[in-house]
Design a protein around this nucleic acid. Sequence first.
DNA 1: CATATTTGACACGATGAAGTATCACATATA
DNA 2: TATATGTGATACTTCATCGTGTCAAATATG
Lengths: 221, 221
Amino acid sequence: MSSMSTKSAPTLQRSGKYAGKAASTRQAERRKKLLAAGIKLIGREGYAATSIDAVCHEAGLTKRYFYESFTNSDQLLVEAYRTVTQEYLSTIMRATRPHLKDSRKLVRAGLQQSFGFVKDNPDKARLIMIEAMSVRSQLGEMYGKSYNEFVELLVGFTKPFLPDSGPGDALLAVMAKGAVGAITHLCQGWIATGFRQPVDELVAGTELIFSGMGRELGILA
Amino acid sequence: MSSMSTKSAPTLQRSGKYAGKAASTRQAERRKKLLAAGIKLIGREGYAATSIDAVCHEAGLTKRYFYESFTNSDQLLVEAYRTVTQEYLSTIMRATRPHLKDSRKLVRAGLQQSFGFVKDNPDKARLIMIEAMSVRSQLGEMYGKSYNEFVELLVGFTKPFLPDSGPGDALLAVMAKGAVGAITHLCQGWIATGFRQPVDELVAGTELIFSGMGRELGILA
DNA sequence: CATATTTGACACGATGAAGTATCACATATA
DNA sequence: TATATGTGATACTTCATCGTGTCAAATATG
């Protein structure tokens, strides 16, 4: 039933631009907004209490754009976790880079940055240290993977200082995991009690744990 | 409008007994069944995936009896957490009682029992170490409270061995919290990876952490 | 200006779980 | 046996959220 009167159909207008930006740019911006909103809400209210509608409202977008970037809320959580974990890890690496040769300074810088990040970003800390554990789904592997990145970071920090007579890799890995657990758990408790305890106390106590491990490993006198 | 024909209302029959047991007994049994079902399902499927209907079905009861014992599923989780935590703590105290004088044996016995309980009761372990953190509500305090019991247990274990020159209580508390965190985190990872790692490796690694802390505290050479 | 696409606001149906109520059957006592 | 209460199954209402669909206004382009 197409009328042959006018050739209106072909060679229509399109370029993908809107509001000055290209389609891919806008889409990336939306995704970023949603991710930020998700991090904020999940970290603040908890994953179970965070609906997709709420995330969209916080981001100033509508559900359509949520499903443009994520398939469901689990996916958002996974991405949020990945993003924040990466950020956390980066800040620690940045803070420790100048002290890779001095084990004491290295430990102190790493711990101060760890606790510092938590205090400066309570929402993000809650997200990666508390909310992330609860969800099964893909996050299980995700969590394990990111967690291992921390463990490997720690092992990497330690290796240069190790004497030949040190314990095997298996034991070293267990100790590193335990150390990550100690920090994580202290952060969890710290968050839960509203950051009442002074950072220095936490750092000092954790330093003792680390220096004890160092001694067991043959580092330090 | 009450008919005066018969005085059928007064002095009716009642004693509360049914199926041989008193009312309070039956009610206690139902509560126990629900609690056991809740522990099993929450530990196995996760809190978010555990509906009240499922708990009732697992317990062989109906919803009416759920609301007889609990006001909502949060309450069930709290009670389940409290119950299992108490049990966990008890088994550790029992296992360590014979070794309160020998710090090395004490640590080893405590750790073996800790990891042993987790492996023997994976559902319960998952419940108190993973699922418990997810819920805000009353569980926040609950978690903190039970968590502190573990910390105090550890501090209690340590105190007899401490020299006068040890660090202050604040530092000691931080270290104990960290130690609990190390164990908890190792258990979490162990659970998540299907208990593949041998217990002895976990115990050995954790022992190193503890003996390192002991050295820092002035215990052991 | 005309047309096509992007956007925002909102409506819609489906789902699942919470919490309550109803009904028939079982058990104890007079 | 008759009656009141305990029990089990299940229906019911309510509610929130998910995921999708619709429609008008805004924007870019010929």
